[in-house]
Amino acid sequence: MTSVRHIPDSRDAYLDAARACILDVGWRRTTLTEVARRAGVSRMTIYRTWPDMKTLLGDLMTREWTAVVAARPPGDDLPATVVATVRALRGNELFVRIVELDPELLLPYLLARRGRSQDLVLDLLVDRIEQGQATGEVRSGDPLAIARALVLGAHGFVLSAHTMVDDRVSEADLDTELAALVTRALAP
């Protein structure tokens, strides 16, 4: 499979069409035929690129979440970067639509395996943790294990924060607590 980071422009247009379909009707009601129609190409063009909707969705989610993560400024301190990324994912239009209509699509990435986007996040976190360890700003320890623990913790803040928000605790309050958790987890 071609790396998502090297998708030709036509594939981006097809992914844009798939994104629009999913936003309109959800993943279950989106077909490769409808993606082809919206992209203005033949069904065979789409079928030659993706054998099924699951594969197309994997590439779409990887492109989408990679863009969200890449948009975080590398100069920010790590806790602020984690909170900003979590907040951006929670507000991402495609992510919100999937959670609303087809949340089961996310279960494999929570219960069975890591996805490409999660691996990208881990790579970025490991780099930042190693940099922090080199300057003494981050505690010693296996950078990969620390990064994986941070991602596991962030999952709840991305997927379930809304279940903890009410008239006593706001989403901003939870983000403040996430920053405190990350800060304490990394403190030397």
Rank of each mutant, 00 (worst) to 15 (best):
D166K: 06
R38W: 03
D9Y: 03
L78T: 06
W27I: 15
M164A: 11
F95A: 09
D167G: 05
L89K: 09
R29E: 15
L150G: 01
A71V: 05
V165W: 01
S117T: 12
L144Q: 15
T49H: 04
S160V: 09
T33S: 09
A134W: 00
P188R: 12
S10F: 09
V41I: 15
I22Q: 01
T45M: 05
L122F: 00
G91L: 01
V82G: 00
A70G: 00
D9K: 13
V182Y: 00
R168D: 10
I22E: 02
A18N: 01
R43Y: 08
T45C: 06
T2R: 15
D12N: 12
V126E: 10
D52G: 04
R72D: 11
N92M: 04
G91P: 02
D77V: 14
T2E: 09
L94P: 03
P8D: 14
V96C: 10
L186Q: 02
E177G: 04
W27L: 15
A112F: 07
P74S: 13
G156K: 02
D59V: 08
R148I: 02
V99S: 05
V35T: 06
E34M: 14
V138K: 00
Q131S: 09
W50R: 12
L101E: 08
V169L: 13
S170F: 02
A88Q: 10
E130M: 13
R90P: 11
L15V: 13
V25L: 03
S140G: 13
P73F: 04
T183E: 12
A39R: 05
P8H: 08
R28A: 13
A161K: 10
M61R: 07
L94H: 05
A13N: 09
L159G: 08
A172H: 10
A147V: 07
L186I: 11
H162F: 06
S10E: 15
T30Q: 06
A13K: 13
E130D: 05
M44W: 05
A134L: 04
G132M: 05
D12T: 08
R97A: 12
V96L: 07
T33D: 10
L15I: 11
A112I: 11
I46T: 07
R11H: 08
S140V: 10
T176M: 05
G91R: 12
M164L: 15
G40W: 03
G132Q: 04
L178M: 09
V126Y: 01
A17D: 01
E100S: 06
E104Q: 14
Q118Y: 00
T85V: 15
Q133K: 05
A39C: 11
L122R: 15
L32Y: 00
R29N: 12
P8T: 05
A112M: 13
A185H: 04
G132V: 06
A67G: 14
L152W: 07
V169A: 04
D142E: 14
V4S: 03
W50N: 01
S42R: 07
T135G: 03
T176R: 14
R28Q: 13
R43E: 09
L111A: 11
T2V: 13
M61C: 07
A187N: 08
G132I: 07
L150M: 15
D52Y: 04
D12K: 10
A70E: 15
A84N: 06
H6Y: 07
E64L: 00
R38A: 05
L174H: 09
D24C: 02
A149R: 13
